[in-house]
């Protein structure tokens, strides 16, 4: 199956690989949602996963931080290897909590905790046992700046997170994800619940973030994938159809299926 993936890159990009799926399979009960996925994720680059609903892109994304372990009946096989330490994230002896400490996540709908703005960001530090006040203050401020939210919320750090606007809430969730200094951040359609202006600010932020952290993003919005990502993976019915440099995938897709989807002739 894996051989079916069309690679759309003129040459090896000579970049460090941060993580890599190797023959990754996933089942929801009896239903096979992902079939033999082989895909690199390059260090400090943005990789986007696109494809129609139900193609398995979110399933693949959530496999990276083992969110699937939360629900019974999910099975997976193959490997997702993280570099440079060459750890198979899916190995039985690897603690999913440790994985989630290195790979953070931002969700589709902003989901701030019922806590203050400050405590929302401090949460990912507190669960790591960091309770020193000045260290928390430093890192919360740093993360909020990193999420381009500091100027808007510096005077309302004690407000409930839920009182912010939708776009601010999503940036709060990004700040929360940044606070623990992750190596990879997973974005699961982070702008689908936001208006165009908030979307633009999140996109800008994601592009800035990739200087420091590797980003994997699922999006329904093909323009978004084209605008912000360095690499694009097109998935369909649980298979990785085409993978390559974003510009090439969008301008000169090599696979007919990818072309149909991108040009809107799909189905």
């Amino acid at each position: 199956m894996s051989n079916a993936t069309t690679i759309n890159m003129d040459a090896d990009p000579k970049l460090a690989i941060k993580a890599e799926c190797r023959n990754f399979n996933f089942h929801y009960g009896d239903f096979q949602a992902l079939k033999g996925i082989n895909m690199p994720v390059y260090d400090k680059k943005i990789t986007s996963l696109i494809g129609p609903s139900g193609c398995g892109k979110s399933t693949l994304l959530r496999s990276f931080n083992r969110m699937h372990d939360l629900y019974p009946g999910n099975r997976y096989g193959g490997e997702i290897v993280m570099h440079p330490d060459n750890t198979n994230l899916l190995a039985k002896e690897v603690d999913p909590i440790e994985v989630r400490m290195r790979i953070s996540m931002v969700f589709q709908k902003p989901n701030p905790f019922p806590k203050s703005v400050f405590e929302n960001v401090a949460y990912s530090l507190r669960v790591r046992g960091i309770n020193n006040k000045s260290e928390l203050e430093d890192r919360v401020q740093h993360s909020l700046k990193g999420a381009a939210l500091w100027d808007e919320v510096k005077n309302r750090l004690n407000d409930l997170g839920a009182n912010l606007s939708g776009g601010q809430q999503q940036r709060l969730c990004i700040a929360r994800a940044l606070a623990s200094d992750p190596e990879i951040i997973l974005f699961d359609e982070p702008t689908s619940a936001l208006d165009p202006i908030a979307t633009a600010s999140i996109e800008e932020l994601v592009v800035e973030l990739c200087e420091k952290v590797t980003i994997l993003i699922v999006t329904h919005n093909m323009q978004q994938a084209a605008r912000i990502s360095d690499f694009t993976a097109y998935m369909y019915l649980g298979e990785l159809i085409e993978y390559g440099v974003t510009d090439q995938v969008f301008i000169k897709p090599k696979n007919k299926q990818t072309e149909d989807y991108i040009t809107g002739r799909f189905g």
């Binding site: 909590i97 440790e98 400490m101 989901n111 701030p112 019922p114 949460y123 669960v127 623990s180």
Partner: peptide, 22 residues
């Protein structure tokens, strides 16, 4: 909602932390 729990787990929280803090 499950999304709050997922948010907490995704930050590396344990089950007990998620239960008691979120």
């Amino acid at each position: 909602p499950m999304s709050l729990r997922e948010g907490s787990y995704a930050m590396g929280a344990t089950r007990l932390q998620t239960s008691l803090r979120v």
